[in-house]
Design a protein around this nucleic acid. Sequence first.
DNA 1: CTGAAAGCGCTAACAA
DNA 2: TTGTTAGCGCTTTCAG
Lengths: 331, 331
Amino acid sequence: MKSSDSVTIKDIAKKAGISYSSVSRALAGAKGVSKEKRAKIMRVADECGYRPNMLARGLVKRQTKTIGLVLPDLTNPFFSELAQIIFDEARSHGYNIILDVTGRDFEQEKNCLSLLLSSQVDGVILKSYKPHFGVESASVPVIMLEKADSPNFSYVDVSDESGGAKAANYLLDRGYRHPVILGGKTTSVSHRLRIEGFQRAWAQAGYPGSDITVEFGDFTLESGQEGTAGLLRRKLRFDCIFCANDIVALGALQALGEKDLRVPEDVGVFGFDDITYARLPQIQLTTIRQPLQEMGELAVSMLIRQIEKGVPASPVRVSLDPELVVRKTCK
Amino acid sequence: MKSSDSVTIKDIAKKAGISYSSVSRALAGAKGVSKEKRAKIMRVADECGYRPNMLARGLVKRQTKTIGLVLPDLTNPFFSELAQIIFDEARSHGYNIILDVTGRDFEQEKNCLSLLLSSQVDGVILKSYKPHFGVESASVPVIMLEKADSPNFSYVDVSDESGGAKAANYLLDRGYRHPVILGGKTTSVSHRLRIEGFQRAWAQAGYPGSDITVEFGDFTLESGQEGTAGLLRRKLRFDCIFCANDIVALGALQALGEKDLRVPEDVGVFGFDDITYARLPQIQLTTIRQPLQEMGELAVSMLIRQIEKGVPASPVRVSLDPELVVRKTCK
DNA sequence: CTGAAAGCGCTAACAA
DNA sequence: TTGTTAGCGCTTTCAG
């Protein structure tokens, strides 16, 4: 059954000799249709290979059972695994996902958002890298995946300050005294918070937190690699690297290895996220674990709640606490 | 500007005192609207925070500028990177992506597909793990990401037989004689083809190809790990493992390490895909590289071509050749 | 150049 | 339980 124009509810009404609202009811599984008619309709419908048109349905019902997900980058396992979790969770609640990737570009982010809103998604989950208020004009619930200062949005995030502080304290505890912070983007809110947490903890321990070297980058393996190589080239004095994420840490390890520096003896490497690959026996990266599963599930359930019950007067704000994972890349 | 009900083309027509079809024209950038009216309309439109309703637009235009992407699993970097590539490529042509993940489940796959078709996507890119013909009833172009025997669909795939053969020949060349094939799903077409390619090459070299041990799994790290552990436990004789993908290989390496077996001296480990993490200095996995970039770009451009010019009478079939990447996990 | 009107496929009152 | 009807927000003839 391959017609150039697809079969509609009217076609099947005609073919079954029944009014077309009855067909709609039957197909929707609503009450108020006699058993025989319903049976006949169903039969005809799938003989014809009928497929409901979600555009039309969404237009009238004013809901699409679709949620928009905006992420910076699918290339980082942290995000692709998060996407998978959110995806599964959403599906289990009967929602579909439209995924958008921004490449951490500000304009892109705004575009994605307005595109999603145009597509009439019922809600949005958004990991933004720069605070912006295009979101403010959204007419549907939005859950941010980071600490948002706006009074209008709920968020669920992992406390970046706490993560940064945990890293600092551990590093101090292991005897490191000359850290550099590597590889985050200047525009990233989360990264800024991690730096602050790190510096504050460092200062509280009695060391000057403010003159810790911060090398920015773009969260990639390359920026870990080149950043580290640059540090080495400039003969900067440092004994450990607090990386913006695990990918950056992988790059740092690589650069260090190329210069025959030993980890952790010569320099300690500390990651962030605890991606799958950080756990491999060959890697054994010391890092901060972000509770991916909880974060994803919470975001979805909060969002769906708001979609179905309306957004609360004051936003829901959840901060999960990340966990130190000690492995082998620090003394 | 936060109205509970979103502003429509009619609202802005009223507010500008112009008929609402003119507004539509102006907003579409169509000709036949005077400069002044156009300017006024634009101004009013964005004062009101107007957002076109894609559902309505799609309904009448019968196209959504959206393509559906169905992938088995976002957790494997191979697929998440492919997704990213397809995503970028599609966007650069003005198309959006709706992503669906099937978990390699047959029913799921069919659901996803019909859902996408219901959503009126303009075309579909599909990596299937079991040949099925729900696809046949699609009323839009479909590009499969694997060798499809159906005469109705175009595909772009990476030659799995060739990959399997290259692996076999390399392993033979390095002196391995007792391979086991590990970790693929029984239902996977690609995996079956790789096995065939491997066995055939093995046989052609004068060794019995048919009695090579094949341990199935589900393409995960765990199945690599447990599969290998099982092999060891059963004291099966083997000197190398041809893994269903790099993730499985990572699992195999781990299991081998736990039993203090040396790689590559005691057993060689061979992957498939060449994911980013296979290249790390700590891993150095010998593997077969799938040309991700070409595959993604080709799939998108073929699909868009078919969307815009119609599907060709006879399907386009492209097989890319994968490349052997020699690193350190085989002698 | 502009407006009126039809209709995309569907749901949801409302009558019958 | 049924059928009729009025839209959802938009594009697109078709007259003026």
